[in-house]
């Protein structure tokens, strides 16, 4: 679980000056506060949001 929020790709995403970046930063902050079960839910939620962002990019392209 911790690998997802601390891997280099996610770290670079968290540095973005965008809503996606804020999402990543908030997820990182939250992952440090929750237990393992909640962290799994959080990871799934972040993945869902990233999929939605990607889909939105695809639609706009």
């Amino acid at each position: 679980m911790s690998d997802f929020f601390n891997n280099p790709q996610f770290e670079s995403l968290a540095k973005e000056e965008s809503v996606r970046g804020v999402v990543a930063r908030l997820a990182q902050e939250r992952s440090a506060e929750v237990n393992a079960d909640e962290k799994a839910v959080l990871e799934e939620a972040v993945q869902l949001l990233l999929q939605q962002f990607q889909a939105m990019d695809g639609e706009s392209a």
Binding site: S18, V19, R20, V22, V23, L26, A27, R30, V41, L42, E44, A45, V46, L48, L49
Partner: peptide
């Protein structure tokens, strides 16, 4: 439902923060 609620809260908060 938990995942969706987490995602909605996360995105809403991110947009608000941004």
């Amino acid at each position: 439902i938990s995942v969706l609620r987490e995602a909605i809260n996360l995105l809403a908060k991110a947009v608000e923060n941004f």
